Simulated scan of single mutants.
Amino acid sequence: MQNAIAHFDVDQNLKSYLEFQTYPFSLSPNYFPQIENATSLELVSIKSQSQINEEVLHHLPNLKMIITRTVGTNHVDQELCQKRNIKIATLPNYGSQVVAEHALGLLLCGARNIVFANKDCQNGQFAYQNFLGSSLFGKTIGVIGMGKIGQALTKLLQPFGMQVLAYDIYQDQKIAQQLGFSYKPLKQLLKTADFIVICASLNGETQHLLNLETLALIKEGAVLVNIARGEIIDTKALLKYHTKFKAICLDVVDNEAHFDKTNQLLSLKNIVLTPHIAFYSDKTIKTIGEQTTLLVKQFIKDHTL
């Protein structure tokens, strides 16, 4: 099995928790010349930067299992994997709390101008007059996607005294009652909320959920946070409506693999960006490593005569 298992998109922090071959790059055709015994691989573990499609699978004729160290699977061609009898495993429970913490951090950065004020201080300007903040207390926040991350964020928000509205196609009224939020139609939420946080998974229904029509509904001076997937926001539409926001705080962007200094989002004065680090903490890296290793061991057990 030594040559049959490999992990991709692995940094030094995660590497210490994984057995077998690790690579720092994504699983993509450009890197296949650097992969040892690619045709012998039976199991690979990846992150969302690896796009598993027909071209990639063509180089992996013996692949039996993909472990994606993510909650979502939108980067994996599931239909093609099913045709080839390739099993797909995810890690659905590794970091909801940590991601929610990052969402709260971005929310506070946007509301209180923390990043923008820091830039002034770094440039030798120590003046408060340009950074009037927005208090969270008594305001309305709209959470798009009330799954595990949305629920964790709602719990973190309780001391702030905010009214929490939620949009989700799957509604759990028992959870809503327990956590003290109410479900609303998307358009009503967007029109009402002072702060909006996207926690939804990416699928056919949520891709470009925030577009020209829906972004137009959001009130002036709102703070927008996205810690889910970049493709949930139509970037072209966001560029058109960016001036209506007090702050746009994104941990994810569309087409992250090709992000560079020419990205148009960097031209916005009210943008706060972090490079998809909401999940990335000491606790979650340990959990990801341990859960991935358990899946690998089970695979070996199932495929060893």
Rank of each mutant, 00 (worst) to 15 (best):
4 A>I: 00
6 A>R: 09
13 N>Y: 14
13 N>V: 06
19 E>K: 05
19 E>P: 00
21 Q>W: 02
22 T>Q: 09
24 P>C: 09
25 F>N: 10
32 F>C: 05
35 I>N: 02
37 N>V: 04
39 T>Y: 04
48 S>W: 10
49 Q>G: 09
51 Q>Y: 14
53 N>C: 12
57 L>E: 00
59 H>Q: 12
63 L>W: 03
65 M>K: 11
67 I>M: 04
67 I>F: 05
68 T>K: 03
70 T>F: 00
70 T>P: 03
71 V>D: 00
72 G>T: 09
72 G>D: 13
76 V>H: 03
76 V>Y: 08
78 Q>D: 02
79 E>H: 12
80 L>A: 04
82 Q>T: 08
82 Q>R: 13
84 R>H: 10
85 N>Y: 06
91 L>T: 14
96 S>E: 15
97 Q>E: 15
100 A>K: 01
100 A>I: 08
101 E>C: 09
107 L>E: 01
114 I>M: 14
116 F>C: 05
121 C>F: 13
124 G>N: 01
125 Q>K: 12
125 Q>E: 14
130 N>S: 14
133 G>H: 00
133 G>P: 00
135 S>N: 15
139 K>G: 03
142 G>V: 12
144 I>W: 06
144 I>A: 08
150 G>T: 05
151 Q>P: 02
152 A>R: 06
154 T>H: 07
157 L>C: 10
157 L>N: 08
158 Q>N: 07
159 P>A: 06
162 M>Y: 00
165 L>A: 01
168 D>E: 03
172 D>C: 02
177 Q>F: 00
182 S>D: 11
187 K>Q: 12
187 K>H: 12
191 K>S: 13
193 A>M: 00
196 I>V: 15
198 I>G: 08
200 A>D: 07
202 L>K: 10
202 L>V: 14
205 E>S: 11
206 T>L: 08
218 I>A: 01
224 L>T: 03
226 N>I: 04
228 A>I: 02
231 E>Y: 00
237 A>M: 02
242 H>A: 12
245 F>D: 11
246 K>R: 15
247 A>P: 10
251 D>I: 06
253 V>S: 09
254 D>T: 13
256 E>Y: 11
257 A>N: 14
258 H>P: 04
265 L>M: 11
268 L>S: 10
270 N>G: 07
272 V>P: 01
275 P>R: 01
277 I>S: 14
279 F>M: 08
283 K>R: 12
287 T>C: 11
288 I>T: 08
289 G>H: 07
291 Q>W: 03
293 T>V: 09
296 V>K: 10
301 K>D: 08
303 H>D: 08
304 T>Y: 11
